[in-house]
Amino acid sequence: MSNKVDEIMNEAFSEGRTFLLEPEAKEVCQIYGIPVTKFKVARSREEAVRFAEEIGYPVVLKIVSPDVIHKTDIGGVVVDVKNSKQVLEVYDRIIKNVKSRKADAKISGILIQEMAPDSTEVVVGEVRDPQFGPSIMFGLGGIFVEILKDVSFRIVPLTERDAREMIGEIKGYPILASYRGQPPSDVDSIVDIILRVSCLVSEHPEINQLDLNPIFVYSKGAKVIDAMIILKKP
């Protein structure tokens, strides 16, 4: 399974990129058994509508461009697109947004993605520490990560105990356990994602940084909504 991952990374390197496009990053996740939202890359307006219908409304449309890492910043993401008319409209709008902010951006296509129902957001990430090597981060999404920096780390390779401990260690853990009458989140599914990421990054030293942000966690199962993988030439 690693061969396919190598292929994806080599392609990025050959194009002079040091990061994977979102669909590439999600494919890498899929290869490692990490659950991601359904997605397809449309190269035309017609394809966009066809894929949206295959996936089922509502959908999310996102820019796919080697020149754009942070997609939201330039109006490259639109959520809750409900029908074919809106798909066409949003398709044009995203391309216009990107062109107007970054005229020379190469556009590889538009990602049509299943719109997963809202749920508790968590983040799983990876970073290479110069002394300890690949390390995994876990935190709750949104302000918990960004403002409160309520995150925990473990160094690869992780045991199941490590994964469970790092989830239980964050201050916001009670939100996962049960919050305002919500059913408890499926912690086992997060443990599973963490262990798969641990495996992925230890088998692929070219991965320099990784963000699965956000991941929606449900009372049963979890889904990666956005994935970013930054590479470093070995």
């Binding site: 970073v127 995150v151 990784l210």
Partner: peptide, 25 residues
Amino acid sequence: GTVAAMSHTGSLAGSTKIYMAAFRQ
């Protein structure tokens, strides 16, 4: 300061947190 903060994870990893993780493990 050496971790280039391209990702969220990169910007949140400090040496203290990594050392504490190492101690824990």
